[in-house]
Design a protein around this nucleic acid. Sequence first.
DNA 1: CGCCTGCGTATTGTCGACAATATGGAAAAT
DNA 2: ATTTTCCATATTGTCGACAATACGCAGGCG
Lengths: 243, 243
Amino acid sequence: MSLTLAPDGQSPASDEAVPRLSLTVAAQPLTQQIANHIRDQIIHDGLKPGERIREQPISEQLRVSRTPIREALQILATERLVDILPNRGALVANPGVEDLRGMLKVYSMLDGLGGELACLSAQPVQVAEVERQYNLLQVAFEAKDRSAYFQANQAFHLGIVAGSGNPTLVEIHGQLNLRLYRTRYLAVMQIKDWTSAAYQHADILKAFLDRDGPLLNRLLQAHLGFAWRQAEGVVETPALASA
Amino acid sequence: MSLTLAPDGQSPASDEAVPRLSLTVAAQPLTQQIANHIRDQIIHDGLKPGERIREQPISEQLRVSRTPIREALQILATERLVDILPNRGALVANPGVEDLRGMLKVYSMLDGLGGELACLSAQPVQVAEVERQYNLLQVAFEAKDRSAYFQANQAFHLGIVAGSGNPTLVEIHGQLNLRLYRTRYLAVMQIKDWTSAAYQHADILKAFLDRDGPLLNRLLQAHLGFAWRQAEGVVETPALASA
DNA sequence: CGCCTGCGTATTGTCGACAATATGGAAAAT
DNA sequence: ATTTTCCATATTGTCGACAATACGCAGGCG
């Protein structure tokens, strides 16, 4: 879960135990680690929409100077997960219902396109992974484990898009997915009737296995539109709106 | 064109001539200005794909410390216009033909969706703007002014998408457009037969004015696919590939 | 009584310096 | 002659300090 960030964590006498071979996987840049850290907190609702993100507290918690933190915030701002107000700091992005509706429109289109392309070019190992996630989905559903259900649901859909073999599509789809992540998570955890949407996955999987691209495209878009209509009521949490 | 960046450019005695009223448009953050500066150079081919971007020369040219430059590079890396190799600097992104093909697939899908939505919710002023750009397009075409043609073509397509009223769509579409900008520009400037694609704009405009969403969607996607097939030959410039 | 002004403080923005890492080439070894 | 090692140099990465800006509140003014 949480990153082991502090660079002063000295493994005893490990200076020679871990020589700087080029074979060794290079540690991720500090800026990226920090961006990942903050991003995780945002999508998992540790940092609430509209909440102020101050640099100094993060600097102290992670034992890092403000410089890489500011670089990380620029990344997250470009991903539209935070808003940076010049000279007034960074806020967790707080999209309104209308914004979320617009994002979902684009997202479902990309999701459908991903499915359609995946029917053409998904590798067997990718198909198998999607099937595996479908089974996990069913297990979680029958166990009424919403958290596991959400996780498998994520992996199921992302797995299909990955099958498209289109890196740009995967990237943009994934970025929009992050923007919608928190809302979708809260929706899945809260809505009363989560049975209907769950059953749609069987048809989706079948279309995928049949490699029926156009059908899968339609099913995915309809599925997301349906899930959204169920979630819409939950969204009405204006979060922090002061003054 | 080029930014007036140097903060030492003292307009004589303008300290009181431009008081810091809240009505005054706040100057764009330095980081953004630098990002815009580098972005412009990339898409206009001043910085070539694969070329190294060193921080110090930029720092000297713009009379700015490296800190905001690094922040700008993080932004551009998130936009996939540059690649940052940890400890080894930033390069101008250099997508291969396969990458470009994948981007264009997503781009045309978004373009088509934008057109379809625009048929539903474009404001009269937006429709008028698209018509205006269409006329500029025709003028430039008849004058064989490829540069003006490209510019009007850009504004024409972006104008349609803007009519969708979906900020997320506009943003993602615009970002992909930037990634493809240089290639499209070089293609328009180089291809021999640029008459065929030009004529398609008449049908596109008509479908838009008729508010025929599905038709416009199909026309736009076909249009981009066509333009791409014409451009494909031009793309074969592997740029810098040393060692 | 409410609003405007001015100042102290908190926070962001920028900088120069130093540390860490990679690069290229000369010298040495095979 | 070729490869390897080692070092000087160039470049990126991180930091602490300072500058610039915004915020909140006390005091004064209409």
